[in-house]
Deep mutational scan, measured.
Amino acid sequence: IGSLMYASIFGNVSAIIQRLYSGTARYHTQMLRVREFIRFHQIPNPLRQRLEEYFQHAWSYTNGIDMNAVLKGFPECLQADICLHLNRSLLQHCKPFRGATKGCLRALAMKFKTTHAPPGDTLVHAGDLLTALYFISRGSIEILRGDVVVAILGKNDIFGEPLNLYARPGKSNGDVRALTYCDLHKIHRDDLLEVLDMYPEFSDHFWSSLEITFNLRDTNMIPGSPGSTELEGGFSRQRKRKLSFRRRTDKDTEQPGEVSALGPGRAGAGPSSRGRPGGPWGESPSSGPSSPESSEDEGPGRSSSPLRLVPFSSPRPPGEPPGGEPLMEDCEKSSDTCNPLSGAFSGVSNIFSFWGDSRGRQYQELPRCPAPTPSLLNIPLSSPGRRPRGDVESRLDALQRQLNRLETRLSADMATVLQLLQRQMTLVPPAYSAVTTPGPGPTSTSPLLPVSPLPTLTLDSLSQVSQFMACEELPPGAPELPQEGPTRRLSLPGQLGALTSQPLHRHGSDPG
């Protein structure tokens, strides 16, 4: 009997000691992992102490058991019943959930998450997105703005933001810190809205009876308010094209079509300037034949640059190039080494500058006005007194259609001029006259002087055409309008007829 009692007592005591040691061994194993994590990542002392304290409290609170892992091991129907039991206190005593059906309560219970916070733990920081609604079931918390405590909340209090009033989550206007050990039930806004969409009859009752104890939403960050730039940057990543407008005076608003859609830094370009900076079609017209890549860069430059609305530039004389043409100036200075066709295309550029300027006046029909002061630039669209967005969009579309028509007509005119030049060069190729044979009589004449090349004649003739079109064909006081194609086609051969009437002889060394 004594040996039996000794064996039973010894066996029970050893089993008890073994169970104690097993729990202690698990605790030390998990604690060792936490300390190894702290050492590996070199976490500083204040945060390291918070980690160790939280682990110790969580171990004593749950005995080292992962409740979520245990809950996920059950089937979904059983999980709903378990969640309904775990959140029964909240669902029974909170006013917004009263009167809900059994199915609605089960769906809500599945969406709730339980959070346990030790003292000093910050649940929400200032500036964080308010993605959830919090219900306090135990403990107390404090809300701070800077170093000032603005509120202390306790059991059955609710904090967050009214989700039904805002389409997008706002930002917190303060820090939420736990004063004691707290148990909180939180539900994400997407989950709550999903359940309320499934039960629309409960939705009206819920929003009407929901009383948020403390609204954390920062009202200064609401979209459309003066301080909402940061919020707009976070939620409006896919922005449309940006529009900046110059201020319109009362006198300017009476004149229709007073602005032109141009790229940034293009205030001095012609009315047909689009795409790359520098001139019509993204580059100076005089350098068009020598740089074919300008047409390839036109599309990307047009689509990537934001639109700006600026006044037209001052008018340019008909014979003056659009500006920024070092290529043609070098050719004029060193005409001995340049291609003979460069002079002809220089005359073509003069005609283009004249036609572009006159067509700009035809479509816009307003006098040039000086540029406004820099303080009046970049007025935002949302400022008071601005035109409605639809009106601005319609004006932009009208300007775009005008620019497209202008570009089409300029292309047709350019093709006409090039065809005339090619026809003239085919009839009378460039050549130098040879020395004529002296006559049989004693009164022999001296050799004839060489005839100037055709490109120079073409430049003079085209300059005469531009001056003739600019000065004589337009009646005084009438708006400057571009001439039609047949009129220009008839004027060019008439001007060139006198020049080509002389018999030109080919030089023996000319390969053409």
Rank of each mutant, 00 (worst) to 15 (best):
G127N: 06
D128L: 02
D128W: 01
L129V: 06
L129H: 12
A132L: 03
A132S: 12
L133P: 02
Y134F: 07
Y134T: 07
F135M: 03
S137K: 08
R138H: 06
G139H: 01
S140V: 07
S140W: 08
I141L: 10
E142P: 01
I143P: 01
I143M: 02
L144P: 02
R145W: 05
D147W: 01
V148Q: 09
V150A: 06
V150G: 02
V150K: 03
V150E: 03
A151G: 11
A151F: 01
A151H: 01
I152V: 12
L153Q: 01
G154P: 02
N156R: 06
G160L: 03
E161D: 04
E161N: 01
P162L: 02
Y166M: 06
R168K: 10
P169Y: 03
K171M: 08
N173Q: 09
G174C: 14
R177F: 02
C182Q: 03
C182N: 01
L184Q: 01
H185S: 08
H185W: 04
I187S: 01
H188S: 10
R189A: 08
D190G: 07
D190N: 12
D191T: 03
D191R: 02
L192R: 02
L193H: 11
L193Q: 04
L193A: 08
E194A: 13
V195A: 04
V195P: 01
D197E: 07
D197Y: 08
D197S: 10
M198I: 06
E201N: 07
E201V: 03
S203Q: 15
D204P: 07
F206T: 02
E211Y: 03
L216S: 01
R217W: 01
T219A: 12
T219R: 11
M221G: 08
I222S: 12
P223N: 09
G224K: 09
G224D: 12
P226L: 10
G227P: 09
G227T: 11
S228T: 12
T229V: 10
T229A: 09
E230L: 09
E230H: 11
E230K: 08
E230Y: 07
L231M: 07
G233Y: 11
G233P: 09
F235H: 13
S236E: 10
R241E: 12
K242C: 10
L243D: 09
S244V: 12
F245Y: 14
F245D: 10
R247S: 11
R248K: 11
R248V: 10
T249E: 10
T249V: 14
K251A: 13
D252N: 08
D252V: 08
D252L: 12
T253Y: 10
T253W: 11
E254G: 08
Q255W: 13
Q255R: 12
G257D: 07
G257W: 04
E258R: 08
A261Y: 12
A261P: 12
G263D: 13
G263R: 11
P264S: 10
P264Q: 11
P264M: 09
G265V: 09
G265K: 10
A267E: 11
G268C: 12
G268I: 13
A269Y: 10
S272I: 12
S273K: 04
S273Q: 07
S273M: 10
R274G: 11
G282N: 12
S284Q: 05
S284A: 09
P285R: 11
P285T: 11
S287M: 15
P289Q: 12
S290M: 15
S290W: 05
S291R: 05
P292H: 13
P292I: 13
S294H: 13
S294P: 13
S294D: 15
E296S: 12
E296A: 11
D297T: 05
E298V: 11
E298I: 10
G299N: 03
G299V: 13
G299A: 08
P300V: 05
S303T: 05
S304D: 11
S304Q: 08
S305W: 15
P306H: 09
P311S: 15
P311L: 04
P311H: 03
F312K: 12
S313M: 13
S314F: 14
S314Y: 12
P315D: 14
R316I: 15
E320W: 07
P321S: 10
G324S: 06
G324R: 09
E325R: 07
P326R: 12
L327N: 05
L327I: 11
M328I: 13
E329S: 09
E329G: 06
E329V: 11
D330Q: 03
E332N: 09
K333E: 13
S334C: 15
S335V: 12
S335T: 06
T337L: 07
T337H: 08
C338T: 07
C338G: 10
N339L: 10
L341P: 10
L341Q: 14
A344C: 03
F345G: 11
S346V: 10
S346I: 06
G347K: 04
V348F: 04
V348L: 04
I351W: 06
F352Q: 13
G356M: 08
G356T: 08
D357K: 10
R359V: 08
G360P: 15
G360E: 09
R361S: 07
Q362K: 05
Q364E: 09
E365C: 04
L366K: 11
L366W: 12
L366A: 11
R368C: 07
C369N: 15
P370H: 09
P370D: 10
P370S: 09
A371Y: 11
P372N: 12
P372W: 07
T373K: 07
I379M: 14
L381E: 10
P384L: 12
P384I: 15
P384R: 10
P384V: 12
R387I: 13
R387W: 15
P388E: 13
P388I: 10
P388H: 15
V392P: 06
V392T: 15
V392L: 04
V392F: 15
E393N: 15
E393F: 01
E393S: 05
S394R: 08
S394V: 11
R395L: 06
D397P: 07
D397C: 15
A398F: 13
Q400H: 01
R401V: 08
Q402H: 05
Q402F: 13
L403D: 03
L403H: 04
R405S: 04
R405L: 04
R405M: 03
L406A: 08
E407Q: 08
L410Q: 01
S411K: 12
S411H: 10
A412N: 04
A412D: 12
D413Y: 01
M414N: 11
V417D: 08
V417M: 15
V417A: 07
Q419C: 06
Q419N: 05
Q419T: 11
Q424C: 09
M425P: 10
T426W: 14
V428R: 07
V428P: 03
P429Q: 10
A431T: 10
A431G: 09
Y432N: 13
Y432T: 13
S433T: 11
S433C: 14
A434G: 08
T436A: 08
T437W: 08
T437R: 12
P438D: 10
G439T: 05
G439H: 12
P440N: 05
P442V: 11
T443A: 06
S444G: 08
S446C: 12
P447G: 10
P447T: 11
P450L: 08
P450V: 09
V451M: 12
S452G: 12
P453M: 09
P453V: 11
P455T: 11
P455F: 04
L457K: 08
T458R: 11
D460I: 01
D460P: 07
L462Q: 12
L462W: 01
L462D: 13
S463R: 13
Q464R: 10
V465Y: 04
Q467L: 08
M469Y: 13
M469V: 07
A470T: 13
A470L: 08
C471D: 12
C471H: 09
E472N: 06
E473D: 13
E473W: 04
P475E: 09
P475S: 12
P476K: 09
G477R: 13
A478N: 04
A478K: 12
L481A: 09
P482M: 12
P482R: 08
P482Q: 07
P482W: 12
Q483T: 10
P486S: 11
P486G: 04
P493M: 14
L496Y: 06
L499V: 08
L499N: 15
T500E: 15
S501W: 11
Q502A: 12
Q502N: 12
P503W: 15
P503Y: 14
L504I: 07
L504F: 01
R506S: 11
G508A: 09
S509E: 12
S509A: 09
S509T: 05
D510L: 12
P511Y: 10
G512N: 08
